[in-house]
Amino acid sequence: MTRIRRVEAVVNVASGSVGEDAPQLVEKIFADHGVEANVCAPSTDELTPCLRRAVDAAPDLLVVLAGDGTARAAAELCGPGGPMVAPLAGGTMNMLPHAVYGARPWQDALSIALAQGEERMLGGGEVEGRQFLVAGIFGAPALWAPAREAARYGKPRLAMLRARRAMRRAFSGRLRYSLEGGEREKAEALTFMCPLASRALSEDEQVLEAAALDLKGALDAFRLGFHALTGDWRNDPAVITERCRVARIWAQHGIPAILDGESVRLKALTEVRWRPDVVRVLGIPKDI
């Protein structure tokens, strides 16, 4: 079991399913394990400065109870030489927390990690200085993420408006891509899965699973936009998969993308690379 003495915890009470009593619950769980934690529960506009201060304090462990964007930002700030990270499920999709701890409540994940936790170095993808540890999705399906989130929050009218906007933009231009310096190919979208989450890769493989999505129309984009972040997409007839360590992607305009659940906009020419050492996490045994 990894020995932990100093802990910083950042809790976003405004995120997803966190709740106002989460800071007290975090403190109690640490107290039950004989560890004192400095818990920060900032307002939304203070979240990033709070996260930076927590990393600068150089703790043994940084606990993040927030959404996907904050979990990914914590991994980027810590890097391979910084504090270990415990990303807890406090958002809506919770891609990294579920990949590390399984789809269990954050209270259970934290308790198990403190009792039986093991340090693990995670590799992942990198694009334009941003990292992803679970999945990166580029192109048409990424346009549907805002509609998907509105539907999750029970806002059907907003979901419909966002879906219409995505439909207008989805097929304005296909992506061109090259894997491992090979020939240029065309696809409506590309997905890169990390070993942490890929069903086709073992966790010790030093590659990404690349999938080219050959979408035939708006129905395909809608379907994959709502399922691309789950295991459903790989069995789709429009998907072709390969392994790679580097990929170049071209588009007529900027490329919409989702990196570990967070929507971003990339340049019209970008490169995705495998990195073997993105961040250390406090994981749990696989048989739990």
Rank of each mutant, 00 (worst) to 15 (best):
G34L: 03
T270N: 01
Y101F: 15
A268G: 09
V64S: 00
E27V: 02
G102L: 07
W274C: 02
F171L: 09
A37N: 03
T241I: 00
L266M: 08
D232E: 15
G34P: 08
P87W: 02
Y101W: 02
A57N: 06
R174S: 13
G79M: 04
V127R: 03
G102Q: 06
D236I: 08
D32L: 11
Q24F: 13
L77I: 07
G261M: 06
G225Q: 11
R130T: 02
A166H: 09
A66Y: 08
R280N: 10
W250C: 01
V264M: 08
A73W: 09
L213E: 11
L215D: 04
P146H: 09
H253T: 14
R152Y: 07
E119D: 04
D60Y: 05
G123E: 09
A54T: 06
E126W: 11
E20T: 11
D21Q: 14
D232L: 11
L259F: 13
A197P: 06
P141T: 03
G19Q: 09
P83W: 04
L224K: 10
A189C: 05
A140D: 08
K155H: 12
S17M: 04
A210S: 06
P87M: 01
V100P: 06
E119V: 12
A268D: 11
A89Q: 01
T191D: 00
F132Y: 08
A74E: 04
C50V: 08
R245Y: 06
P237Q: 12
P285K: 03
R169G: 06
D204V: 00
T92H: 13
L51C: 04
F138C: 03
T48L: 14
V264H: 05
A57F: 09
P23W: 13
F192S: 05
F132T: 01
A9H: 00
Q131I: 15
P156N: 09
K267N: 14
H33M: 00
E27R: 15
M121H: 04
E180M: 05
A151N: 13
L51M: 12
D214Q: 12
A268K: 13
L96R: 02
G217N: 10
A54W: 08
F138N: 00
G124L: 00
V127P: 07
R168Q: 11
E8H: 03
E180F: 10
R168Y: 14
S263R: 14
P141K: 10
G79E: 07
V279T: 14
G123P: 01
A151Y: 04
S43H: 01
R245Q: 15
T230G: 14
A166P: 07
Q206S: 11
A170V: 13
